[in-house]
């Protein structure tokens, strides 16, 4: 009787512990997904900011005067 009772109890406990572990794993994965959403948002913002800076740095408006001032390829001296 006692053995049967203890076996049953152990089974119930094992199922509960397994369930809790699954629940924790599930929660951890959800957290990771949420974290990824957050990181993706930051990455998008940073990408947009970096793209803007790159465009500003390479804007023809900034380089126009220098390009105009430089001699054309055919005009350069051979050396």
């Amino acid at each position: 009787m006692l053995v049967r009772f203890l076996t049953g109890l152990a089974l119930v406990l094992a199922v509960a512990v397994w369930g809790t572990r699954l629940e924790n794993q599930n929660r951890e994965l959800s957290r990771q997904i949420s974290l990824q959403h957050y990181r993706a948002g930051i990455a998008r913002r940073e990408h947009a900011r970096a793209k803007l800076q790159a465009e500003q740095a390479g804007a023809p408006a900034r380089l126009l005067d220098r390009v105009a001032a430089a001699p054309a390829v055919g005009e350069r001296s051979p050396d």
Binding site: A48, R49, E55
Partner: peptide, 9 residues
């Protein structure tokens, strides 16, 4: 493909 206008948060 040069950016003429873009938006930042």
């Amino acid at each position: 493909g040069r950016v003429l206008a873009t938006s930042l948060e």
